[in-house]
C-alpha cells in the first residue's frame, strides 16, 4: 500500500486540508474507489476503511493482479465531517455539485477539479455516495444515463439492483456524471445508511466491490457470486407520498415485498395523538426506499416502490 496526497490546501485556522489516497498494486490505472464527499457520509467512510483493510491483506498475499493499480480515497470532505456539517464548511457549497471544477475558481471548485484530475484516467470509478432524500435504500448501484453508462458492468457488483437515472439539470455537476464524461465507467454504490454505521450493508458493499474487482481481473479473490441484478429505470419507481404532516410511524422495512392496498405506515397528529393518515401501497412490489425520519411533511415521499416486482 502506498499513501499519496491527491490534493492539498492551506487553511488559516486548521491543519492543512489534504485528500489522501491509498494505492494497491502498480501499473495501469484500473479502479478508483471514493469515500465521502459530504460530511454526513459516515457509513461511506467506514466502508472505505474496511476496503483498505481488505486490500492491504490481499496485497500482502500477492493477490493484486500484475500491472494493475487500485486507488482508494477514503474521505474527500473530512473538514466538514469534523465540524458536523454536510457541505464545505466555509461557504456551505456541495463539492458534489461542483464538478468538473476549475482550478482557477472557487475553493470547492478547485477541490473538485484537483480530485477529478487525479482520478479521471482510471478505467473504473466507484463512489460511495448519498442521495438528497433522507432515508433508507435497498443497497444498489446507481448510474447516470449519459450514453456511456454500462449496466452490464454494473451487474458485476452482484448487488440486488442497478438503477439508471436520467440526468436532471441538477445532476450535471455531480462527480458521477462528469466521471462518465471522462470515459471512466463510473458507478455510485448506495447502502442503506449515511450518518450511522450499518454493519450488515457495509459488509455487503465491501463484498460487492471486491466481487467487481475480481470479475474485472484486478484482484484474485474467491467470493460469493452475489445477485443477478435487477435493472430499474428511476422514473419507473412508484412514489408514495404522505398527504398529512406529523409523526411518522413506519410499518414496512426497506426490501420487503408489499401488496396493493397494504398498510405501509401511519401519520400521527403531533398534538392529539390520533392517526390522521394511514399510508397504503398504491401498487404491489418491493420497497426500494423508505423515509426513516420520525417526522414527516405533507407531500414528503415516504416510500418508493419497485412496481410489480416480487421477491
Amino acid at each position: 500500500m502506498k499513501e499519496q496526497i491527491i490534493f492539498s490546501m492551506k487553511a488559516p485556522y486548521r491543519e492543512d486540508f489534504q485528500i489522501k489516497g491509498y494505492s494497491f498494486g502498480k501499473g495501469m490505472k484500473s479502479a478508483c474507489i471514493l469515500g465521502p464527499i459530504r460530511g454526513n457520509e459516515v457509513q461511506q467512510l467506514y466502508i472505505c476503511s474496511q476496503l483498505i483493510k481488505a486490500l492491504r491483506e490481499l496485497e500482502k498475499n500477492g493477490c493484486i493482479t500484475n500491472n494493475k493499480e487500485i486507488l482508494v480515497i477514503p474521505c474527500i470532505n473530512y473538514y466538514s465531517m469534523n465540524v458536523g456539517r454536510k457541505f464545505w464548511p466555509v461557504d456551505n457549497t456541495d463539492i458534489n455539485r461542483m464538478f468538473p471544477g476549475n482550478e482557477e475558481e472557487s475553493t470547492s471548485s478547485r477541490i473538485a477539479s484537483g480530485l477529478l484530475k487525479a482520478i479521471k484516467d482510471y478505467s473504473y470509478g466507484i463512489q460511495f455516495a448519498s442521495f438528497y432524500l433522507n432515508g433508507e435504500f435497498v443497497p444498489h448501484v446507481r448510474m447516470m444515463e449519459t450514453g456511456y453508462q454500462n449496466t452490464s458492468l454494473a451487474n458485476l457488483f452482484g448487488l440486488p439492483y442497478v438503477v439508471v437515472r436520467k440526468p436532471q439539470p441538477i445532476d450535471t455537476k455531480t462527480l458521477n456524471f462528469n466521471w462518465q464524461n471522462e470515459m471512466t465507467a463510473a458507478f455510485s454504490v448506495y447502502t442503506n445508511s449515511n450518518d450511522q454505521v450499518d454493519e450488515k450493508s457495509a459488509k455487503q458493499a465491501v463484498a460487492a466491490v471486491l466481487r467487481f474487482l475480481t470479475r474485472m481481473g484486478l484482484i484474485k479473490y474467491e467470493s460469493h457470486s452475489g445477485y443477478i441484478s435487477h435493472i430499474i429505470l428511476e422514473e419507473d419507481l412508484s412514489n408514495v407520498s404522505s398527504m398529512k404532516s406529523g409523526i411518522f410511524k413506519r410499518l414496512i422495512e426497506t426490501g420487503q415485498e408489499v401488496r396493493y392496498g397494504q398498510e405501509l405506515g401511519y401519520v400521527i397528529d403531533p398534538f392529539l395523538g390520533d392517526v390522521v393518515e394511514t399510508i397504503v401501497a398504491d401498487t404491489e412490489g418491493i420497497v426500494f426506499f423508505s423515509h426513516t425520519e420520525p417526522l414527516v411533511n405533507e407531500g414528503d415521499i415516504v416510500y418508493r416502490l419497485i412496481h410489480r416486482l416480487h421477491e
Binding site: S245, G246, P270, F271, L295, N297, E298
Partner: peptide, 11 residues
C-alpha cells in the same frame, strides 16, 4: 401551502 412537521404550514 404544505403542512410542516408540527402545527405549521409552509406558505
Amino acid at each position: 401551502k404544505a403542512a410542516l412537521y408540527v402545527h405549521e404550514n409552509l406558505v
